[in-house]
Nucleic acid binder design. Structure first.
Lengths: 189, 189
DNA sequence: AAAATGACTAAATGGACAAATTGGTCAACG
DNA sequence: CGTTGACCAATTTGTCCATTTAGTCATTTT
């Protein structure tokens, strides 16, 4: 990748993280990246595509991190939980995802909504892969992997994020227990 | 309840259902109810309280309907599903709840957000009661009933509402199966 | 020639101000 | 005493106009 493209991506990432997508101007990105504004448009056809590219990188990074959390000697239920935990820890701790999610909640910028929806879909697709691998190995019984991944994702959000809004947040340990008891029990072969 | 109060409640319910909370004016309600505007304020201290009272009635109505769906000769898992099904069918089919939920999504009117949050909390409390009754009878193993009710509620939303946004909606039968397999299995004594 | 640039444009946004609307009150009424 | 609608303060809406912004492209730089 060219030097200038990297500078642009770095600058935009920093600005999106700091001010959000809407409040970031292309002039600002150009200045921070120390390039002319026109240069940005030789690499990206619009502001929206710039965001999409950056979020694609984030998605790859999250998948890499989730993969790193997986230990193939451990059973499926343990691994899927480790992966989910990493995914949501990332979302909660990385400035860019924090800022973008906040922007969706507070302003509802359509471009950001779309891109965060894609992030969700990709995370579900990732979990789905893991389920299918486990199914192939006979670690879990056969099931609709898309639906199962969707359910795991939603349940994790419920436990990890939603519950904490009106109650004392659950420990990772407690979440793991519940996950095991209620969701994974039904999956055992 | 006085005649005039009923007229006011009926008019407001109709107007909220038709135009939403924000787009309903107190003058309009007064006119529809064929009373002076001041009369409204002898029964309700504000527009918000009028909404709250109406939603309280809706909550009671939903609970009554859910209760009617329960058959004490059937096992817990069957009954809890029947109740949940009724609850969400109500939300999807009644003009008032449809309009108010739409208003929260599209405009985010704070008063409506608050009142719909309360509706959710009350539904969870209702499910919680059913769980505790079942626990007392030994139909399900002992557990944190609040947490369990919360999980059931969230899972039902995921299956009944969220899944359908990006996939072919699930049949009630399929939802029941999944519910049984994944959530209720972990609850069996 | 290819890559980079920033002045430029059309469109969107925001601010300031007036006009209209609305939730809530209360003196008067029957 | 229950009811009312004219009235008020406050918010919302409509309307300018100035500013800002995403995106383009003729020109410059390499």
């Amino acid at each position: 990748m060219s030097d200038k493209k990297k500078q642009i991506i770095d600058a935009a990432t920093k600005s999106f993280s700091l001010f959000g997508y809407k409040a970031t101007t292309m002039d600002q990105v150009a200045k921070m990246a120390k390039v002319g504004k026109g240069t940005i448009y030789t690499f990206f056809k619009s502001k929206e595509e710039l965001l999409e590219d950056i979020v694609s990188s984030v998605i790859s990074e999250i998948k890499r991190e989730a993969d790193a959390a997986i230990d193939h000697r451990l059973p499926f239920n343990e691994n899927v939980q480790r992966a989910l935990q990493r995914i949501f820890t990332f979302r909660k701790e990385h400035e860019l995802t924090i800022k973008l999610l906040q922007e969706v909640r507070d302003i509802g910028t359509p471009a950001v909504r779309d891109v965060m929806k894609r992030l969700d879909r990709e995370m579900i697709a990732y979990i789905r892969e893991k389920i299918e691998e486990a199914m192939a190995k006979g670690e879990v019984r056969s099931c609709d992997s898309e639906l199962m991944a969707f359910l795991m994702f939603k349940m994790y959000i419920a436990l990890n994020i939603d519950w904490g809004k009106e109650h004392e947040p659950l420990s990772q340990q407690k979440i793991a227990e519940l996950f095991d008891l209620y969701l994974l029990k039904g999956l055992s072969p």
